[in-house]
Design a binder for these strands. Structure first.
Lengths: 206, 206
DNA sequence: CACTAAAACGGAGGCGCCTCCGTTTATTAC
DNA sequence: GTAATAAACGGAGGCGCCTCCGTTTTAGTG
């Protein structure tokens, strides 16, 4: 995993309502989150918190001071990943024609959900329990998607009679039931299919 | 808690696909469930399994042999309580005029949900995770209610243009959000209100 | 009854969770 | 630079989870 590109996003996200942490505290906190990403990825959402502390080189007490419950930590990790996904929208928009950017982002969305396979159930529980988390992240993803769709509609690379909600709705099927073996391939095909539909009748032919 | 009226219901429920347990095993299993009911009621759904084993006078290993996970135990307890609630429908139907039976059963339904206050969140999680459990119990409750409603419609103590689904739907509000202090009273009033509505326009005036 | 195989028992042990509090460190004031 | 103090650290300890396996009990058989 990358080591420090997080601090930027983190800073922005936290700035809302947090007095500045002491330098060592901030360092440890960042490292804990970093490590938590790996451990959750390797062992699932039930990965040991003590392992996270150990690998981060801090005591278990430090972990608990920063994240009073497992859910707090999961939430931060989850928010961070959603943030990264959304940030990718901006980057893709700069590097590619807007229809391609949209397509690539959707494929990345598939990858992102794929990571959550297995975690799906537990994650769904966290999301059920914490509805703010759900609505926040849903909002962020919608916004990222809207940006891409509107750009593509504006420059005519996809048809004009759809909006972000339509596309999000179409992607809904991906979010659910990612527990079958063929899920990933099917999802990739779904994205392509969707793009064909979107390009069909676009102002600017390819 | 009562000591042994469970064996009957239990036997019937389990008979579906279980070879007969050895006498001691059956005894311990029953006792574990019995105790689990109390412990979950006292301490919430996160009550200690070791305490349940201890109070039941068996080793923790025995508990785990019968119920490999906490969820297994929760499920059995939950099914049992739903079963008791549904069984009450038959009893009430014999003892009371059918409209009164319906009303009393609905009040009992309120009591039942009340017990689940606090447990609500965790229980909802179990229900989300285990959809069979949800549909099974939903079905059982519907059936009990249907029996009562149909009887009352048949003998004209409530109006004829409603069915069990309508009533269940009306009770839906009780099931959700039982976490406010006034919940219980409000629910009781709701049931009365509903009964007034049901009696209004009945064939047989009271 | 006595014997035996199969079934059930139960608790020790290893691991993770979480709290509590004595120790260490960064920051601020002089 | 040094002292003081607020903040952060970290791990021991108590508790619960769950597994594993030696011991005990039951239900058949002669």
């Amino acid at each position: 995993m990358a080591s420090e590109p997080s601090a930027i996003a983190e800073q922005k996200a936290e700035a809302v309502e947090a007095k500045p942490l002491r330098a060592d505290a901030r360092r440890n906190r960042d490292r804990l989150v970093e490590v938590a990403v790996s451990v959750f990825a390797e062992r699932g959402i039930d990965g040991s918190l003590e392992e996270i502390a150990r690998r981060s080189g801090v005591g278990i007490g430090t972990l608990y001071r920063h994240f009073p419950t497992r859910e707090h930590l999961v939430e931060v990790v989850y928010r961070r990943e959603v943030e990264a996904l959304c940030a990718a929208a901006g980057e893709l928009a700069q590097k590619h024609p807007s229809d391609v950017a949209l397509e690539q982002w959707m494929q990345r969305f598939v990858d992102y959900i794929a990571t959550k396979r297995g975690l799906a159930t537990s994650l769904r529980i966290v999301l059920t329990t914490n509805s703010t988390l759900f609505s926040d992240t849903f909002g962020r993803v919608s916004q990222a998607l809207r940006q891409l769709v509107e750009a593509a509609v504006a420059d005519g690379t996809i048809r004009g009679d759809v909006d972000a909600s339509d596309v999000l709705h179409a992607l809904g099927g991906i979010y659910s039931a990612p527990d079958t073996p063929e899920w990933r391939d099917r999802s990739r095909r779904l994205v392509k299919l969707l793009m064909d539909g979107l390009r069909f009748g676009a102002v600017k032919a390819r």
